[in-house]
Measured scan of single mutants.
Amino acid sequence: EVTIKANLIFANGSTQTAEFKGTFEKATSEAYAYADTSKKDNGEYTVDVADKGYTLNIKFAG
C-alpha cells in the first residue's frame, strides 16, 4: 500500500491537501478522479508530478 498526496491549488490562492491510499495505480486514479470532480467548480487543472509520482500538485485555472 502506498499513499499519494494531492496538493490542490485553487485560482484564489487557497490550498487543500488530500491523501489517497491503495496500490500506486488505485491511489493515483482516485486522486485524478477527485480533481475531475473538483473541476466543475474550479475550472480546468494542470498537474505537476513530484516525488516520483507520490505527490501531485494540482493547480486549477479558476
Rank of each mutant, 00 (worst) to 15 (best):
E1Y: 13
E1P: 10
E1G: 09
E1I: 15
E1A: 10
E1C: 14
E1N: 11
E1F: 13
V2A: 06
V2C: 11
V2Q: 05
V2R: 05
V2G: 03
V2P: 03
V2F: 06
V2W: 04
T3K: 08
T3W: 06
T3M: 08
T3Y: 06
I4E: 01
I4A: 00
I4M: 03
I4S: 01
I4P: 00
I4Q: 02
I4W: 00
I4V: 11
K5E: 05
K5N: 06
K5H: 09
K5G: 03
K5T: 15
K5I: 15
K5F: 09
A6C: 15
A6L: 15
A6F: 02
A6I: 15
A6D: 00
A6N: 00
N7D: 02
N7M: 10
N7I: 15
N7V: 15
N7E: 05
N7F: 11
N7Q: 08
L8T: 02
L8D: 00
L8P: 00
L8H: 01
L8F: 14
L8S: 01
L8G: 00
L8N: 00
L8W: 03
L8K: 03
I9W: 09
I9N: 06
I9T: 12
I9M: 11
I9A: 05
I9L: 11
I9C: 10
F10H: 04
F10C: 06
F10I: 02
A11V: 09
A11C: 12
A11S: 12
A11W: 09
A11F: 09
A11E: 09
A11R: 09
N12H: 06
N12W: 06
N12G: 07
N12Q: 05
N12L: 04
N12K: 04
G13D: 04
G13A: 05
G13N: 06
G13Q: 06
G13Y: 05
G13W: 04
G13M: 05
S14Q: 13
S14N: 12
S14P: 07
S14F: 13
S14L: 14
S14W: 12
S14K: 14
S14D: 13
S14V: 14
S14G: 10
T15C: 13
T15P: 05
T15N: 08
T15K: 12
T15V: 14
T15A: 08
Q16I: 15
T17E: 09
T17Q: 11
T17G: 06
T17H: 12
T17C: 12
T17F: 11
T17R: 09
T17N: 07
A18C: 15
A18M: 15
A18R: 15
A18P: 03
A18H: 14
A18K: 15
E19G: 04
E19Q: 10
E19A: 07
E19Y: 15
E19W: 15
F20E: 01
F20D: 00
F20G: 01
F20S: 01
K21S: 11
K21P: 03
K21T: 14
K21E: 06
K21Y: 13
K21G: 05
K21H: 14
G22R: 00
G22E: 03
G22F: 02
G22Q: 02
G22W: 01
G22L: 02
G22S: 04
G22N: 06
G22D: 05
T23G: 06
T23M: 07
T23I: 07
T23S: 11
T23H: 07
T23D: 08
F24G: 02
F24D: 02
F24H: 06
F24Q: 05
F24R: 06
F24C: 08
E25W: 07
E25K: 08
E25S: 09
E25R: 07
E25M: 08
K26M: 12
K26N: 12
K26D: 13
K26C: 12
K26T: 12
K26R: 12
K26F: 11
A27D: 00
A27E: 00
A27P: 00
A27L: 01
A27G: 03
A27I: 03
A27Y: 00
A27H: 00
A27F: 02
A27V: 04
T28G: 03
T28S: 08
T28W: 10
T28C: 11
T28I: 14
T28N: 06
T28L: 15
T28V: 13
T28D: 01
S29F: 12
S29Y: 11
S29I: 12
S29K: 15
S29G: 10
S29C: 15
E30T: 06
E30K: 09
E30Q: 12
E30P: 02
E30F: 07
E30C: 12
E30G: 05
A31G: 03
A31W: 02
A31M: 03
A31L: 06
Y32E: 03
Y32M: 12
Y32W: 07
Y32G: 02
Y32L: 14
A33R: 11
A33V: 08
A33F: 09
A33K: 12
A33H: 11
A33Y: 08
Y34W: 15
Y34A: 05
Y34C: 07
Y34D: 02
Y34G: 02
Y34I: 04
Y34Q: 04
A35C: 09
A35F: 12
A35E: 01
A35W: 01
A35T: 02
A35V: 07
A35D: 01
A35P: 01
D36H: 06
D36M: 06
D36I: 05
T37M: 15
T37V: 14
T37F: 14
T37L: 15
T37C: 15
T37N: 15
T37H: 14
T37D: 14
S38T: 12
S38P: 02
S38Q: 15
K39M: 12
K39R: 12
K39D: 04
K39G: 08
K39Y: 07
K39A: 14
K40H: 11
K40Q: 13
D41E: 14
D41L: 14
D41N: 11
D41M: 13
D41Q: 12
D41F: 13
D41H: 13
N42T: 05
N42D: 05
N42Y: 15
N42M: 10
N42P: 03
N42K: 08
N42G: 08
G43F: 04
G43P: 02
G43E: 07
G43H: 04
G43C: 06
G43K: 03
G43Y: 04
E44F: 09
E44T: 10
E44G: 09
E44C: 13
E44S: 12
E44L: 08
E44Y: 09
E44W: 10
Y45R: 00
Y45P: 02
Y45F: 07
Y45G: 00
Y45L: 02
T46Y: 10
T46M: 08
T46I: 11
T46C: 12
T46A: 07
T46R: 08
T46G: 04
V47T: 06
V47E: 01
V47R: 01
V47A: 05
V47Q: 01
D48V: 13
D48Q: 13
D48L: 10
D48K: 09
D48M: 12
D48S: 13
D48G: 08
D48T: 14
V49C: 08
V49T: 10
V49A: 07
V49D: 03
V49Y: 09
A50I: 12
A50P: 03
A50E: 12
A50W: 09
A50D: 10
D51E: 07
D51K: 03
D51Q: 04
D51Y: 03
D51F: 03
D51A: 03
D51C: 06
D51M: 03
D51L: 03
D51H: 04
K52L: 14
K52W: 12
K52P: 03
K52H: 15
K52Y: 14
K52R: 13
K52C: 15
G53W: 02
G53K: 02
G53M: 03
G53T: 02
G53P: 03
Y54T: 07
Y54F: 14
Y54N: 06
Y54M: 11
T55A: 04
T55L: 09
T55P: 01
T55V: 11
T55S: 05
T55I: 10
T55C: 06
T55R: 04
T55Y: 04
L56C: 02
L56S: 01
L56R: 01
L56W: 03
L56V: 06
L56Y: 03
L56D: 02
L56I: 11
N57D: 06
N57L: 08
N57K: 04
N57T: 11
N57G: 03
I58A: 02
I58R: 00
I58V: 07
I58C: 03
K59C: 11
K59V: 13
K59F: 15
K59M: 13
K59I: 15
K59R: 13
K59A: 08
K59Q: 10
F60C: 03
F60G: 00
F60P: 00
F60E: 01
F60D: 02
F60V: 02
F60H: 02
F60L: 02
A61P: 08
A61T: 13
A61D: 12
G62A: 09
G62Q: 10
G62V: 09
G62N: 10
